[in-house]
Design a protein around this nucleic acid. Structure first.
Lengths: 108, 108
DNA sequence: TCGACACCTGTCGCCTACCTACACATGGAA
DNA sequence: TTCCATGTGTAGGTAGGCGACAGGTGTCGA
């Protein structure tokens, strides 16, 4: 896989759910927002972005709708569903738990 | 892969290096210590443990030596090499960086 | 008006790191 | 003498990323 420090493997879903939870947004926007919020540390490339988005939609955690962007182009806007909100809460709790455990070991 | 929340993918190496850095220890002991330090949250199974250990040894980050355990059995004890210490520092810094970025996004 | 560019969505094949399941050996206790 | 904890190891499978590529559409400057 050769990770390039652009992402913690296994966390793409939470990250995307979290960003989508802040209001309807299209794929490209998610990538930009992730970069911005993480202060350039975290990044997704298209080859990961869209497949992940489709998986989340297929799982019923997000819903898509074609709409116009501010610039007047067509783009697919995603929003969290009810189960999506639930999933986000679970994943976020999971991360908190694992990150805490990592700290215990790393600072022991 | 089906992760069962026993590990954050991509962090096995740091975790093992960190534990080994606290003094020579054998594979089985590493697994136990990880579980203990992480308060039962983090766990490695043998199928991941030994291959990872061999990879670290092949890379020159740890060195192995057959010795007797306290109970009188033979076991392979691992210790950090010079480059191993360096690698540990790097990986630990990497984790800190990524974990911080995760927090920024998740708490935005 | 036409070419460059930013925006936006998407697919495909590959690789790696982990997982499950299994094999095997030894010392001590029941 | 069998069972359990300890201890090392391999084989095969798969998820979740990655890089490379493909393609369509507005906008703006030359």
């Amino acid at each position: 896989m050769e990770f390039k420090d652009t992402l913690v493997p296994g966390t793409l879903d939470v990250l995307m759910l979290r960003i989508i939870s802040q209001g309807p947004i299209h794929g490209w926007g998610i990538a930009q927002r992730l970069k911005l919020l993480s202060r350039e540390v975290l990044q997704v490339n298209q080859g990961s972005l869209y497949p992940a988005l489709h998986k989340l939609e297929a799982g019923g955690w997000i819903s898509a709708e074609w709409k116009a962007t501010e610039e007047g182009r067509q783009a697919k806007f995603y929003a969290l569903t009810g189960t999506g909100k639930q999933r986000l809460a679970e994943e976020q709790a999971r991360w908190t738990r694992l990150a805490a455990a990592m700290e215990w070991v790393l600072n022991s």
